[in-house]
Write a protein that binds this DNA or RNA. Sequence first.
DNA 1: GCCCGGCATTAAACTATGTTAACGATCCGG
DNA 2: CCGGATCGTTAACATAGTTTAATGCCGGGC
Lengths: 262, 262
Amino acid sequence: MRRNRAAAFPIGDHVLRKLGIFVHLDATHLAELDRLLSETMSVDSLHDIVTEGESCKHLFLLTRGWAVRYKLLSDGRRQILGFIIPGDFFGLRATLFDVADDTVQSLTDCTVCRIPGEDFVAVLRDHPRLGMAIVWSIVREYSVLAEHLVSLGRRSALERTAHLLMELLNRLQLVRLAGERDFELPLTQEILADALGLSIVHVNRTLRRLRQQGLIRLDPQSRWIIIDRPDDLAEIADFSPLYLDQGTPPADSLLKAIRSQH
Amino acid sequence: MRRNRAAAFPIGDHVLRKLGIFVHLDATHLAELDRLLSETMSVDSLHDIVTEGESCKHLFLLTRGWAVRYKLLSDGRRQILGFIIPGDFFGLRATLFDVADDTVQSLTDCTVCRIPGEDFVAVLRDHPRLGMAIVWSIVREYSVLAEHLVSLGRRSALERTAHLLMELLNRLQLVRLAGERDFELPLTQEILADALGLSIVHVNRTLRRLRQQGLIRLDPQSRWIIIDRPDDLAEIADFSPLYLDQGTPPADSLLKAIRSQH
DNA sequence: GCCCGGCATTAAACTATGTTAACGATCCGG
DNA sequence: CCGGATCGTTAACATAGTTTAATGCCGGGC
């Protein structure tokens, strides 16, 4: 299995891919985006980048590695709200409200671009089309969260796990970090458990079932997963990728209206 | 028990209360809001106002009654994402993306204001402060959804139910539809089950436990609930109301920037 | 006044998931 | 090369939650 597919693509490429889904971006936008993303930083694994309850003055873009967004109960139980992969923004709500309502933690070594809140505001003003593309990409998070909620509420452990794997496959493919049916999955079973609302042991059992049914192959050493029968997995999960890329671009009228402000 | 507390307050009053949390609104805004909300309509109970997968060209504001936002699995299982109560907006994401990713259904007779998408865009342009207040109020939905997700993933049936009741108490108080510790709860146990990710039978058992512990009183006939010991209920639920009203107003710089667009 | 449909309630049997505990593999630092 | 830490794996047992089914209450139509 090959690693580091990401290295074959320049930073920013997968971001454009994602943003371009919503809005056509021209050369000016690309240049502006390059400027915006000039301040990159490396983050060690297991480091809190945004902390629940604290203030946060920056918008972030993850360009390498994995992170999670989670909340804790007072007795230490943890629920992971969602995974953040390259091309995902985070920290906007925290910046707007001056307080984060969840914690973002790196799971691996990561690279993030930090965009000062004021700079983002400036982009919204001077390059509304680009700014809006970023906003859409963040608003879309809501759909992912909603589908995750459905999983926790109404899908069995098997269905839920299958659904998460299909979601990750689709999202990673969008930024070219997954092949047709395989990708690197740098998650321990404990992390999966916290995301799926299950115990570690049951995650283990569930993955075993998926393996035994020939649906997936999973090598814990290499942290690589092969989804042998994605269609069957999708059927088990009642997975439909629509919620991920809500194809239609946002009402162009809104863009025009905002651009033409006096 | 008195009913129809709402009737004692003019439409728009609780909305202002909510919007005012974020941004100070002056007389101009109030007048504008009045105009914006001029088109009201009545909706029967159990009517789909926004349908998953369909287009939707309006932003809605619920001013009377209850509604839910839900998604269905292909075998008919239903998960309720959240409750919509007077003062809540819905339909914005659907309008922006030209497609709704969940269904909004009335649970009781409702009154809604329908705001054509273009009008909202115009407000964003001409009264950015008001427009942004509406946007904040919608963004805040994300926090509620996240907390709901934590409930489904990591709270027991008892904790989860307690948490939902506390959330509703707090949200209804904000729009003066709840007293110090009581409110009308026009939900069947089936609806609660679909929201809590539980079976009907287990919801019944759980409510009984809460009743027997002297935490709540619930009369299914009158659909009225009294929360006798809100503090204990909050403790069981690990409930903290912070996520509901994220006190700090949004970065004023953003408002200024948008207002000063040329 | 009667019947019917929707909802709440309960019990009993069942199942999915959690808990505890043990063991094995791999990696890493000394 | 050893010893400890982390993670994955499994089995046996405990429990929370589901399913099925039966009963009762209430309100509405006729």
